[in-house]
Design a protein around this nucleic acid. Structure first.
Lengths: 343, 343
DNA sequence: CTGAAAGCGCTTACAG
DNA sequence: CTGAAAGCGCTTACAG
């Protein structure tokens, strides 16, 4: 046995008086090993604090028991904080992997231009989870390439028809529709939409479509003047409200395409002396932790990140083991708080 | 060349008409390869989308280029949200690893009882970053064992004298002292401390010591009735204020040992009709993102998570490469907002 | 139930 | 500057 360095299966074999393959079998729980022998081997392994060398076993078996999370950001390539919604997804994915016995490798893709390549190709992971925001059209060709290479991956995002690969996303359309209906029920009629509504941002677009559908259901038409582009930062929401007010737009509610936008919007409204919700109702999307702590609490569309994480991980594991997996949409739920309810 | 599956260095060697070791050298940038040959090899590798098999190279070189983050939680072993402060640390560590060319393996230790063992021992990572909260005394013996085994690790936490291993932490004492002084300057005299103040929670204890020192500096004694135990959750802060009020304690300020506690405390105060900061000033510790969004904004002690992440990663990398690394304390900074300033 | 043999895909002395 | 050889530590047919 090597004194320095970690023990190997050969060390154990010597000590147990068996061959090295028998040690390997015993440790992996093969039924073809004498129970007594196994116990002896296990005891020695335990005593030596032996752990199977993953590099060796992965090399031999050609799979890793590891999943890689590629997190890509577009709008803020600086070191600013990560969107809390994605942080929450990250937490949920991490937990889901752990509970299924997989390791999770995490990478921020803004710092690497070598996308798909780096993980499954270099045998670090069995499959990829893609998570992030940013311009969809820019990433689409990359998805296409992943599919062509036979890489196993799932992504979080809108499941568009003809979409390459497997997507898991929440029901953005329904969420947009429901929260808009809620505002309508509260008597609001001039509802601004803050967020991009183009196919570059499919999730925002779906939310906007839901918004339009709800308006239509109430016999109202969407007013193009009430849509202001915004990416998912407070700053962007703050500026969007500023733009709306400067244009002299008349509005009695704001549907922000994300909570971060909504929180920025609320700040801008407060600063102009407009009361939320008395003068302007505000609602968001995501239900990030801080939504319940702003004052008033922010009404929003909750995305179930825990469920999402589980489904992403389970789908990927099934994909890796050769099963066919369909894209899925997860239902959303309204979380109503003070920002949209006049008492 | 194998049609199915990934290309290997041998495939490239065949195509380039050289031996496999030459391919390996060329790809690793060895100066002992003819430049022309190298270019040819590089081109073929590129074309085949070849990536070095990490399992094979790690097995051969006996190091991984991977760091493992062990995140352990004590108080909430359920699926509740991760403390935003640690989420922020996690983001910062992830970025720091990426920018230094290391992969990051993440594990939630609440789900595994096999601590230290699982990572460096199984050759998945070159070193460990320990991050988390919970009872320090419970984990101390494990740290001791890590040191004995020669495992490379750094931990986030209070750098106590005689502490096993390398710790990086913020200056909890100074932070506690500064924020308490601020309250005193605002004319507060009866300052409650919400949080455990025992050696089970060394960071809270240090904050409490800073609090006592500041009081003493102002000629005041710490009133034991004004210290209420709390762990770092809103619920705990909410309950702590409830307990204080039920005891009929007289207090004009609250120093919560973490922002989460402070936010719970503010909620409890609001519900009882007490105004923040007019009736009771509230301050926290951490400066989590939501601190700036509660109403009024929460005054707090900022821990620089970005710097912390960099130092943790750099320290670990140096440790792994055989250098000696000392424990370090990172300075803190007050972030003052409306919760402690009567206009 | 067990062992001898082969091989996963690299890297690195060693020899030329 | 390049190649033949060895070996990292496993797992898995194959033979008994």
């Amino acid at each position: 046995m090597s004194i320095r360095g970690k023990a190997t299966s050969l060390d154990i074999a010597h000590l147990a008086g068996v061959s090295q393959p028998t040690v390997s079998r015993a440790l992996r729980g093969s039924p073809m090993v004498n129970e007594e022998t196994r116990q002896r081997i296990l005891a020695i392994a335990e005593q030596l604090n032996y752990k199977v060398d993953k590099n060796a076993s992965n090399l031999r078996t050609q799979h890793t028991g590891t999943l890689a999370l590629l997190f890509f950001e577009d709008p803020t390539p600086d070191d600013s904080a990560i969107n809390p919604f994605f942080l929450s997804m990250l937490g949920s994915i991490t937990r889901a992997c752990a509970s299924r016995g997989y390791d999770l490798l995490i990478s921020f893709q803004q710092l690497s231009n070598d996308w798909q390549a780096d993980y499954e190709d270099s045998k670090k992971a069995d499959g990829l989870i893609l998570l992030g925001y940013g311009d969809y059209l820019q990433s689409r060709s990359r998805l296409q390439r992943l599919v062509e290479q036979g890489t196993h991956f799932v992504r979080w995002g809108a499941a568009l028809p003809g979409q390459p690969g497997v997507s898991i996303g929440c029901d953005n359309f329904q969420g947009g529709c429901d929260i808009t209906s809620h505002l309508l029920q509260q008597g609001r009629r001039r509802i601004a939409f803050l967020g991009h509504a183009s196919n570059h941002y499919p999730e925002f677009l779906e939310r906007h479509r839901g918004y339009c559908a709800a308006l239509q259901g109430a016999g109202l038409a969407a007013d193009a003047d009430l849509q202001v582009d915004a990416v998912t930062t407070e700053q962007s929401g703050y500026e969007a409200v500023g733009a709306l007010l400067e244009q002299g737009c008349d509005f009695d509610a704001v549907f922000a395409a994300s909570d971060l936008i909504a929180i920025g919007a609320m700040k801008a409204l407060h600063e102009r002396g407009l009361r939320v919700p008395q003068d302007v109702s505000v609602v968001g999307f995501d239900d990030i932790p801080m939504a319940s702590f702003v004052n008033p609490g922010l009404s929003t569309v909750q995305q179930d990140t825990k469920l999402a994480g589980s489904i992403l991980v389970d789908s990927l594991i099934r994909l890796v083991s050769g099963e066919t997996v369909e894209s899925r949409t997860i239902p959303v739920r309204l979380t109503l708080r003070g920002s949209s309810r006049v008492v």
